[in-house]
Write a protein that binds this DNA or RNA. Structure first.
Lengths: 207, 207, 207, 207
DNA sequence: ACGTAAGCGAGACGGTACGTCGCGTCTTACC
DNA sequence: GGTAAGACGCGACGTACCGTCTCGCTTACGT
C-alpha cells in the first residue's frame, strides 16, 4: 500500500498500471460513483484481493490517478517570468498552450473527471491550481502595473479559474475542436478583454 | 412515489418536507456521498421504510431538492427585455441581484451542492441554466449590436456560466460577504470589462 | 376482537364467515405458512384493517376455525356407555361412523390441516381428542375385562390415536373412497385384531 | 449453496455444522416457526450474511438437517431378508431396535421435529419411510403367507406407519423411558396382536 | 542459476447498508 | 358503530459490496 518511492517489482508496477487504466476506462463508461472495486479489478484482469494490496479503496486509486495527472501538468508549466523580472507575455501564452496540449492528450481523463457526473474533488484541485497560477501572474503584474482594484482579488481569481475550467469542459466534451493554440488565444482574449469584448460588444454607456 | 403535483395528504407533505430538510442539514455535515438513507430518516424522525415510500433512494431525494431550488430560482428571474424590445440594462442587473438574493437565502444549500465534494449534477444543471440565460441575453444584444465574433459563442457562454458559478462558490463559502447588489456589480464589471479590467490592469500592447 | 358469545351484528357475522371460508380456500391452494393476512382479506373481499378488528392475526383466525371443527366433532360423539354401564359396542362403532361422516363433510378442511405441510397444532389437538376417547373406552373395558397390561397404557393409546389419524389422512387424501361405515369397520378390525390380522397374516410362532 | 458432495473446505464444513446444530438447539427452545435467520446465525456464532452463502433460508437449512437424519436412519436399517429369501423375524426386530437407538441418540431432534408445533414435512417424510419399510416387509410375508386381505393394504400401511410415529413421539416426549429393545418389543406386539391384544383384552363376540 | 521471499488468484468470512415485504396501528371519511 | 382507504412505525428478509483473512501456486529477485 505504501507506494514507497520507486517500487521496483515488475509485477507491482504492472498491476498498478492495469488498475489505473481500468479506472479511467470504466469511469468513462459508467461514472465513478457507480463503479465497484470488483468492476475495476475484473476489467484490469486483477483479483479483487490484489486490488486491496495496492489501494485502500477506489477513492485512493482515483486520488493517485489525479496526482499523476496534476503532477504531469505542473511539471510542464513554469512561471512566466522574464529574465528582467517582468511579465513575459509570450511565456504566459506558452503556458496556456502547454496546458491545453496536456489536456488534449488526456482528453478522456479530463472529460470524465470534469464533466457531468464528474469528480468534484478533481474539479476543486484543478481550480485551486489554476487560481494559484493566476495569482502568481497577478503578483507579477501588480508590481509593475499599480492600480486600485475595484473588487477583492479573490473574486477575480475564482472568476478566472472557474471560467477556464468551463471552457476546458466544453472543449473536451466536443472532442477538442481547433488547436490548443487557438483555444489559448481565445482564453487570453476572454481574460484581457472580457466576455463582452470577445463577443464584439462595445457597451455604450454602462459604467 | 407518484409525486403527482399537489399531493394533498397532510402527512405526506409533512414527511417529504422533513426528509428534504434533513438532507440539506446532513449534506452540510458529512457530504452527500457519505450519507446513508438511515441517517437521513433518523435525522428527519422518519422511519427508514417510510423514506422508501416517497423516494427511490437518496439520489432521488436529492434530485427533488435540486428541482425545488432551480424551480424557485427560475420563477424569480425574468427576461431582461425592455418594452421597446431593446436590452434593458437595469433589468439585467436586477436579475443578477435577484439570483444572488436567492442564493444568499439558500446559502447552506448552495454551499453544499457547489462546494468541494459537491454534487456534479447540480453544478451541471445550474451551469446549463446560467448559460441559457446568458444566451438569451446575447440574442438580444446581437440583434442591436452587430459585430463579427472572434470565437465560437459557445466558448464565451461556457466561460461566463462557469465563471459566475466560481464566484458564487467563493461567495457562499465565505458566508456571503457584502450585499447581493455589490456582488452583482462585480459580476457585471467582470463580464463587461473582463478580469484584467476588474483588476485595474490596462494591458499595453496585447490585442 | 371480543368474540363474545352470540355476536349479533349481521355485518360482523358475515365478515367473520367470509374470513374463515377464505382461510380454508387459501390454505388448500398455498398452505397456511405461505398465507398473508392481505391474501385472506382480499380473497374474502374484506379490508385488511377490518381483519384486525376480528382476529389478532392469521393464527388466531386458524385457531377459531379449529375450535369450530373440533367443537362440531365433539358435539356429535357421545360416550359409548350402555344403560347397564357396560361397553356398548354398537355405540362404539356408531361413534366412529359419526366421526368419519363429519370428516367426510369437511374433507377439504381435514385434508388441509392434516396433510403434508399441515398444521401441527391441529394434528396434536385431534390426536389428544382421539386419545382421550380411546382412554375413556379403555376405562370402561378395563373394569369388566381385567387383565395385566404388557406395556404402559399410554403407549397403546398413542399408538391408536396416531394410527387413526394416519388412516384419516390417507382417506381424505384419496377423496374418501368407500363409505364412512366401511372405514369404521376397517378401523375396528385394525384396533381389535391388529395390523397383521387385518392383512390376514396369522403369525405362526412369534410372541 | 452447491452442497456438492464432499465439500472439502474445512471452513465450509465447520460453518454448516455450526448452523445445523444451532437450528436444532433453537427449534427446541422456540419452535421452528418463531425462528429468525438472525437467531440461528447468532446462536451459531456465524454472520447472518454467511448463513445465506450456504442455505437459501431457514427452510433449506431444515431440509438439509432432515436429509441428514433420514440418511443416517436409512443407512442403518436393512431389509429383513433371511438367506432363504424368507422373512427373518429376528432381523425385523433388530431393525426396529436399530431405528429406536437412532431415535434415542437424536432424541432432541426427533422431539422437536415430531412434537406439537413440529415440522409437518418431516413427519410426512418419516411416515413415508416407515410405510415403505412396512410395505417391503409385507411383500415378503405376502408371498409366503397368502390370504385374502379384508381392506386395502394402503390403509393398513398408513395405520402402522402413523401408529409407530405416535409411539415414537410419546417416547421421546417422555425422555425415552425403557430401553430401545423394550420399545421394539411393544411395537411388535402392537403390530402383531393389535392394540386390544396389547392391553390384554380378548374381545368376546365382536368379529 | 536457482532457492526463496514476494506477489498473486481463489474464495470463505464478518460486516454494513441496501431496498422490499408484511405486519399491526392509526386516522380520516363514508354509510 | 362497522367499514374502506391508506399512511406510518417496525422489524425481518435476502442481496450486494466492502475489506480482511487464509491457503496454495507462481514468479521475479538477489546472492
Amino acid at each position: 500500500m505504501s507506494q514507497n518511492a520507486r517500487t521496483t517489482d515488475l509485477r507491482v508496477r504492472r498491476t498498478r498500471k492495469l488498475l489505473r487504466d481500468a479506472l479511467v476506462d470504466l469511469i468513462e463508461e459508467q461514472g465513478f460513483a457507480a463503479l465497484k472495486v470488483s468492476d475495476i479489478a475484473d476489467h484490469a484482469g486483477i483479483n479483487r484481493a490484489t486490488f486491496y494490496r495496492h489501494y485502500y479503496d477506489k477513492y485512493d486509486l482515483l486520488a493517485h490517478c489525479m496526482d499523476d495527472a496534476l503532477e504531469d501538468l505542473k511539471s510542464q508549466t513554469h512561471p512566466p517570468l522574464a529574465a528582467s523580472g517582468e511579465m513575459n507575455h509570450t511565456a504566459l501564452g506558452t503556458n496556456l498552450v502547454t496546458m491545453l496540449v496536456h489536456v488534449a492528450e488526456n482528453a478522456a481523463f479530463y472529460r470524465v473527471m470534469l464533466g457531468k457526473d464528474g469528480v468534484g474533488t478533481f474539479v476543486s484541485r484543478l481550480r485551486d491550481y489554476l487560481r494559484q497560477v493566476a495569482a502568481e501572474r497577478w503578483q507579477i503584474l501588480a508590481t509593475s502595473n499599480i492600480s486600485q482594484p475595484v473588487m477583492p482579488t479573490e473574486v477575480v481569481l475564482n472568476f478566472i479559474a472557474s471560467a477556464y475550467i468551463g471552457v476546458i469542459v466544453w472543449w473536451v466534451d466536443h472532442r477538442c475542436p481547433g488547436t490548443p493554440t487557438e483555444m489559448a488565444d481565445h482564453l487570453l482574449v476572454l481574460t484581457i478583454e472580457g466576455p463582452y469584448g470577445a463577443l464584439g460588444i462595445h457597451p455604450p454607456e454602462l459604467a
